[in-house]
Design a binder for these strands. Structure first.
Length: 482
DNA sequence: AAAAAAC
């Protein structure tokens, strides 16, 4: 058979196929159902190691195919090794996969279900914000694989809907995110319920000191798997930042969406309220936009994601609930309405675009006060981001925004009073005043600069602000039994 | 400083 030779990278390994791993015919059939033939790098590395029963510490980001990297060998292991015959339960939980967000749990569960579809293995997903009852029925009927967010899983355990005493394999997905989100105590409680003898897989986007400590405390002699850091993916993403007046950010985002005629874009906001307001602003401007964040009901969150994926919605305005994990593929563009406080999150956010070989744009708007955030980001990604200029954008002069919250509008001083936005106290736009008695609202007083524009403490290391949290974490980590 | 996650 004479094939036209194709260009191959000089030292690329011979092409591996899923069929080479000794996976069962049922699993291979599920893969071919989906048209998968060749594993991604992390799958090629992880599958054999997991099949050997080894613990794994994997550094991999979303979009690398890590879900299949752990779920395929797990399914294989569960098929190959029968459930312990002593088990009183007919279908004890044998594999437990924990994720930091509900949407990620759903997504992982969909994958697992698809890969296991031709096997007798049952799986289900449990997470908060939804009725307990349907989950309870499924758990009580018995499942081998559970995908869960920690809080709701503990709830089910307490109600004796599920027992974790037979778990053979534990997966912690997005472990760094779990730590960020303060899941450690829950994780600790869950881990204490599992058999001491088990296989552990931990995946994390970063290899921070905290993650290494966590790995040391509950992985046994793990194999470390690391695939290319996402900094490399940034090559395909064209990044531009626009410095604008803080109060003009919403209009600028609207402008960018119109100017570029964007039909599928995620806009990231640092706050839930900011996301809601921006979505409403865009809606009122005639752009089909929906907000997704943790204050929305689970039904709303799922509906938003669903209709965005279907293309019914053009703009998804999201908090970092959507920064990681969500498999919204190949977006042409991502916009940061706020620069993220964690530079790492910038990488995750822009990772929503420029995937699978496609190119993408990551646009960010920021204002004076965010210079430090931008500097942190550029330091992390080791490149300077292009400063863009807005063409054809006409700022509306200090126009009171129509969509201000009613209570805010009521407090707003009569008439524009011709005060430029830069004169306003910094706190105004960042949230409502504390609802306490004897309020002495700023708008009743003549304006004075807020406590002298904070002197720039050049000597302060950027990590100082998160040190207390780190110490607390270290204390907790020390408390995990080996 | 804010986000997420159990009721």
């Amino acid at each position: 058979m004479s094939e036209t030779p194709i260009t191959v990278e000089p030292d690329s390994a011979p092409t591996v196929r899923f069929a080479d791993f000794g996976l069962s015919p049922e699993i291979l059939r599920a893969l071919s159902d989906q048209g998968y033939v060749h594993p991604t790098p992390i799958q090629a590395e992880a599958i054999p190691v997991v099949l050997q029963g080894r613990d794994v510490m994997g550094a991999a980001q979303t979009g690398t195919g890590k879900t299949a990297g752990f779920s395929l060998p797990i399914i294989q292991l569960l098929l190959a090794h029968a459930s312990p015959s002593m088990s009183p339960a007919r279908h004890p939980v044998r594999a437990l996969i924990l994720t930091p967000t509900r949407e990620l749990a759903v997504q992982v569960a969909e994958n697992v279900k698809a890969y296991a579809r031709h096997t007798p293995l049952r799986s289900t997903v449990v997470f908060g914000g939804m009725d307990m009852k349907p989950q309870t029925v499924i758990l009580r009927n018995g499942v081998e694989i559970v995908i869960a967010t920690p809080g709701r899983l503990l709830d089910h355990v307490e109600q004796k809907n599920v027992s974790l005493g037979q778990v053979q394999i534990l997966v912690m997905d997005e472990a760094d995110r779990m730590l960020d989100m303060g899941f450690l105590p829950d994780l600790q409680r869950i881990i204490n319920m599992l058999p001491k003898q088990r296989q552990n897989l931990m995946f994390s986007a970063t290899f921070s000191t905290e993650i290494k400590k966590l790995a040391n405390s509950f992985l046994t002699n793990p194999v470390t798997i690391e695939v290319a850091r996402s900094n490399a993916t940034a090559d395909k993403v064209t990044q531009v930042v626009y410095k604008v007046d803080e109060d003009a950010k919403r209009d600028v985002v609207e402008h960018l969406i119109r100017q570029r005629n964007l039909k599928q874009v995620i806009v990231f906001s640092n706050t839930k309220i900011g996301a809601s307001r921006l979505a409403r602003h865009l809606e009122q401007a005639g752009i089909n936009a929906v907000a997704i964040h943790g204050d929305k009901t689970q039904q709303e969150r799922m509906a938003a994601l669903d209709s965005f994926k279907k293309g019914e919605i053009e703009v998804l305005v999201a908090t970092d609930v959507a920064a990681r994990g969500l498999d919204i593929t190949d977006l042409p563009c991502v916009i940061n309405f706020d620069l993220p406080y964690n530079a790492e999150d910038y990488v995750h956010r822009i990772g929503r675009t420029g995937r699978a070989g496609a190119s993408g744009d990551a646009l960010s708007v920021y204002s004076d006060k965010d210079e430090r955030l931008l500097a942190d980001i550029e330091k992390l990604i080791k490149q300077t981001v292009t400063r863009g200029t807005l063409e054809g954008f006409a700022p509306r002069s200090a126009r009171p925004s129509r969509d201000a919250a009613p209570e805010r509008r009521a407090r707003r001083e009569p008439e524009g009073a011709g005060r430029s936005s830069s004169e306003r106290p910094a706190g105004r736009s960042s949230g409502p005043m504390p609802r306490r008695e004897k309020v002495d609202p700023w708008f009743l007083k003549p304006y004075e600069p807020a406590a002298a524009p904070e002197p720039v403490k050049a000597a302060t290391p950027s990590s100082s602000s998160i040190k207390p949290a780190k110490q607390k974490l270290a204390a907790l980590l020390g408390g995990i039994p080996k």
